[in-house]
């Protein structure tokens, strides 16, 4: 369960998020829609703990973060919460396969590898798994970024 309560965030004195509250149940899909500059990315970065709001609370399951907060060292919510960025940020020195498997670590369990194979099949990625990011199309990179995130089994 993800809960956001009365989140406020300012950039250079301009209020971007004002008392935003939101509940997201596990296994649901939630869309945040709004015009450019409305603060969608800021909200997502706040939920992902990449930016800290000035005030408010964020709860991810049992972990609660009350702002203002200087650091979340030792209480990082990742990869329980993970992100697929607009610009993807697929690591350029690794192949698509290495990009997906790097966060899993060297000792991949058979179960995890089966998950990887299933996702590769679902996203039709077999033909470009061993290519580098600069050798694949944007759509292929997008699929790689989604699979990289899904492999972490976020909540």
């Amino acid at each position: 369960m993800l809960q956001i309560e009365k989140i406020c965030k300012k950039f250079a004195g301009n209020s971007v998020l004002r008392n935003i509250s939101l509940d997201i149940e596990p296994g649901t899909i939630t869309c945040v829609i709004g015009p450019s500059g409305a603060g969608k990315t800021t909200l997502l970065r706040t939920i992902g703990m990449l930016e800290f709001p000035e005030s408010g609370r964020v709860s991810i399951d049992d972990e609660k973060y009350a702002f203002p907060l200087k650091s979340i060292a030792g209480r990082e919510p990742w990869p329980k919460i993970t992100m697929v960025f607009q610009q993807l940020f697929i690591w350029p020195h690794l192949t698509i396969k290495q990009n997906i498997l790097l966060p899993i670590g060297k000792n991949i369990s058979p179960e995890k590898y089966r998950q990887f194979e299933k996702l590769v099949k679902t996203f039709r990625m077999n033909s470009f798994l061993d290519r580098y990011p600069n050798q694949v199309s944007l759509g292929q990179k997008q699929r790689a970024a989604i699979v990289r995130a899904l492999m972490l089994s976020p909540k």
Binding site: L50, W78, I81, F89, W91, P92, L102, P103
Partner: peptide, 30 residues
Amino acid sequence: FPNEYIIAGQVCGLKKRQIYLQIQFPIILR
């Protein structure tokens, strides 16, 4: 060095040391 590569590592649950050794260092070296 694009900081976003580090952030991508963070949100994937990688530790600082892993990010440095497996992402930052090899990209910069190349």
